[in-house]
């Protein structure tokens, strides 16, 4: 096959179909007798209070931001790593400089306390 991504596309289709089929079979076989008590939100037997959309710590967002920066960085590093054998020494050092600049960012976040879970 010329484009391997067509294979991946077919794989996605089959990969979704098999679990969907399992759910379909369960839907045909399994009993369904819903009632309000059965369908109530499970909170260890206690009546649920308030909205399930609880407020989250802003910390989660900070970690997601730090993650985003490093994720983009590693994406840049992959082509560098693939071509590594064919690069001269100074080109390898440029990649290391790239990492060092970003590590200084990690150090800054660390010193500022952004990596503490409060």
């Amino acid at each position: 096959m010329q484009n391997p991504w067509i294979y991946i596309g077919l794989f996605i289709l089959v990969g979704m179909m098999i679990p969907a089929m399992a759910l379909m079979i369960a839907r045909l076989i399994a009993p369904r007798k819903p009632n309000p008590i059965k369908q109530s939100t499970y909170e260890c037997g206690i009546e649920t209070v308030g909205d399930s959309w609880v407020q989250f710590k802003a910390q989660y967002y900070i970690f997601a931001l730090v993650f985003l920066v490093f994720d983009v960085e590693t994406v840049f590093l992959f082509p560098w790593a693939v071509a590594f054998d064919k690069l001269p020494l100074f080109a390898a050092l440029e990649g290391i400089l790239f990492i060092l600049i970003l590590i200084s960012g990690l150090v800054y976040a660390w010193r500022k306390g952004a990596l503490e879970w409060m």
């Binding site: 979704m16 369960a26 839907r27 076989i29 939100t41 399930s52």
Partner: peptide
Amino acid sequence: LLIKEDITPIGADKIIYNLAPI
């Protein structure tokens, strides 16, 4: 697992709720 009753909680977002395990 197949013959267990399938319970959808009240207030669930049905489409997303069913898509997630798939």
